[in-house]
Design a protein around this nucleic acid. Structure first.
Lengths: 357, 357
DNA sequence: CTGTTAGCGCATTCAC
DNA sequence: GTGAATGCGCTAACAG
């Protein structure tokens, strides 16, 4: 392994000065065609990797990023994504990037429209946008406006068809639903019913991710010809105090529930309901390591939980954004994160970014 | 959030020059008592965090590290630890740290003694040692020699009693065994026997980690009063060609095997045996994402696999070593990594390092 | 257009 | 003992 190649070396090899090489590397113009040719020739031969930590030192330019996701309350799913983003900003503390955060209510399509409208209006002076999408049509419309202005955007949590993001960071939601089905059916007594937790929404639009998970879930059941009946179990995310009644009513209606599965991050509501009502014979499989879900795992109400690595998604998105803007590093568009299966025994070790012990 | 505090700021605040502050920060002596007092007073008030990437830039000193682990063949467990170490070295490419790697045969205690002897003799000029231990007594002896010379050492894979490492990075092997028991018994038909894969060793000494996992395994069975009989299943790591015969003989002897569990990383041998012999009715739970095990997961021979994040352990060990040596950063001694549960559906997404963090 | 130069924050060397 | 000066690799402003 030879010594690192510096800008100065490239300058010497191509017979120009370091300043010129820098101008070429950053597409900053004011360079003659022949100088460009000479340098690019050399760049093809050697592999130059700028020292990003040093370059940040002398970089004067500021970058502006807009981040828009559903509301990120402490201990909930979206907060983990924001935590990952902050972590990346710390790692690149030398780079001046100013973030504007705009969140909307993910259970209220009107809230999303309002926030997207605001972003679309003012986004002219942003260098990039990170989007945590929920509603399909609304997000596609926002992306089109950004595309028209030439502003790159990245997705976290899930990608979206009909858009051309710089890059997206997601788990495979179809596989996630498939796996949820496998886990809950593997521990639910045959012959009993399975409850499926679903959020009530204003504006009657399902989240993009839920649809995919549902497909994966249904496909697993169909493939294996699993006969358990699936019963819809509604809860209110906007008015949590109503959920207790909704759950009580659900279990009064369906007397043969052997297991419950959550295709969204709110399964902790059920875990909490179980532990408060002394219910221990119904199996429970949940999604996302929120604070409530972690508690449910620890006290044994939740049997399995799937983690999607939201912190890592946020981290990678911001890291990619910076490396693209500042160093024009080539980016990989499709990025899938791990689907971790957690149990009571292992949940304690999943605190890499969040939840201090 | 205020602007970052630099050495120059501290110098100004305490009425000395930057050079003096640097001498104090690095305990390099040649500083008057009153200057030290003044600077330390200021350091107490403000929180100074050196920019490690910039400091590497001007650092002339070289560091020497010794790394000793079992042999690290491509695609096997220990290679992942080395991969993590290399990754950390890349992240700190500005710091010149020269690594000497010494590996031994983990199935042959004499090989370990020979390698440790060599290290003990020459370690005088090392700044730190990273140890992947296998044999207890031998490693304790090595650590005592290192301790006497004042050379700090770190463990990866597993800690060791009677030693005082700077830091260790491990999964919880007891919990790992406990979890292996939970997984294999949850899918093995009641009433059938469970095979437990074990390595034959030269020198008749069990690896430290195996003992802990075995305890966790047994405790789970005892707690749940699980009646399945456990049958020892030997294989030869040193002469792989013999393993086929050993396995064939095992299954001829025990006709009622419903599941097999591997408390070490070599379960892939069994997966391979199953797929070559068309055996699909015996459940299999394995440990560690080696190349062979990954294949077993993918082709369906392995039902569950537990991953210990070896890359992350190696990465953190080298990162901690560097931050301690170069920046005197305080270190946390006990560090536990995740225990990931992988299935056929999720294995494809676990390639962060074998690629990236 | 292009070469030169002045920092960025820090460790180190050299005069004082 | 100590402050000032140097250089690490890179960007940006400046003088040609």
């Amino acid at each position: 392994m030879q010594r690192k190649i510096r800008i100065k070396d490239i300058a010497a090899m191509s017979g120009v000065s370091a300043g010129t090489v820098d101008r070429i590397l950053h597409n900053r113009g004011n360079v003659s065609e022949e100088a460009r040719m000479a340098v690019e020739e050399v760049l093809k031969r050697v592999s130059y990797k700028p020292n990003i930590h040093v370059s940040g030192l002398s970089l004067k330019r500021k970058y502006r990023a807009i981040i828009t996701t559903p509301d990120a309350l402490e201990g909930e799913y979206w907060e983990s994504i924001h935590s990952g983003i902050r972590h990346a900003l710390e790692e690149f503390e030398n780079i001046r990037v100013e973030c504007q955060v705009h969140t909307y209510n993910q259970y209220d399509i009107y809230s999303c429209r309002e926030v997207y409208g605001r972003i679309g209006g003012m986004a002219s002076d942003a260098d990039a946008v990170i989007i945590g999408p929920t509603f399909k049509k609304e997000t596609v419309r926002l992306c089109r406006r950004l595309g028209d202005k030439g502003i790159p955007y990245l997705f976290v949590d899930s990608p979206l068809e009909e858009t051309t993001p710089l890059s997206f960071f997601t788990s495979d939601h179809y596989v996630c639903g498939y796996l949820l089905a496998r886990l809950i059916t593997s521990i639910t007594p045959p012959g009993s019913d399975i409850g499926m937790l679903q959020a009530m929404r204003r504006g009657d639009e399902s989240a993009n991710t839920s649809v995919l998970r549902k497909q994966g879930f249904d496909d697993y059941l169909a493939e294996r010809k699993i006969p358990n009946a699936i019963r819809k179990m509604l809860f209110s995310a906007t008015e949590p105090e109503k959920s207790d009644d909704l759950l009580a009513q659900f279990f009064r209606t369906y007397r043969n529930i052997g297991g419950v599965v959550a295709l969204n991050s709110r399964g902790g509501i059920v875990a909490d309901y179980f532990s408060r009502n002394g219910i221990s014979d119904i199996k429970l499989v949940c999604l996302d390591l929120t604070a409530t879900n972690a508690q449910g795992l620890q006290n044994g109400s939740i049997d399995f939980l799937i983690g999607q690595e939201p912190e890592h998604q946020g981290f990678l998105a911001m890291k990619t954004l910076i490396e693209y803007l500042v160093y024009r590093k080539p980016v990989r568009v499709e990025n899938y994160t791990q689907l971790d299966i957690l149990t009571r025994e292992t949940v304690g070790y999943y605190n890499r970014f969040n939840f201090a012990p």
